[in-house]
Amino acid sequence: MTRTNDIILRTTTTLIAFILLGFSIYLFFAGHNKPGGGFIGGLMTSAAFVLMYMAYGFRSLQKILPINFRFVIPVGLIIAVATGIGSFIFGEPFLSQTFAYFQLPVLGKTELATALLFDLGVYLTVIGVTMTIILTIANDRGEER
């Protein structure tokens, strides 16, 4: 196997992936009352992952991120559905949400909403689905060779 000369790609990736991941987390938290949310946050995170896969290759990424993305899909789904069902316990209609303000150590007064939990489910599902699709297609070609 020849070594490819991709030093520019790798160097920029370290920087860009970092920014992408940071921004995706920002988008995720901006979630339910500003533009953003679990879906777009998940997409951006998977974009960062895909970039890293392209720059460093399948093997090394499997070492750094030993996640079975196919497993992430049901995890995300169950979180999302569970937050919906949570409202059953409180006698509220299905998918009801609520929020409250808490005094947190570093952040100060913070709004915590159950919508965020639902978003977390969406976030994980989107990462799981996108990564599964992309990695399956990518692996397919490798097997044929």
């Binding site: 497993f71 049901p74 559905v81 059953f88 299905f94």
Partner: peptide, 22 residues
């Protein structure tokens, strides 16, 4: 308001997710 209407959707949905784990 009654959550009963959502029951026929949620039960199979949950089942589908749980089954996907194993």
């Amino acid at each position: 308001m009654s959550n009963l209407a959502a029951l026929p959707i949620i039960l199979p949905l949950l089942a589908g997710i749980v089954v996907a784990f194993i």
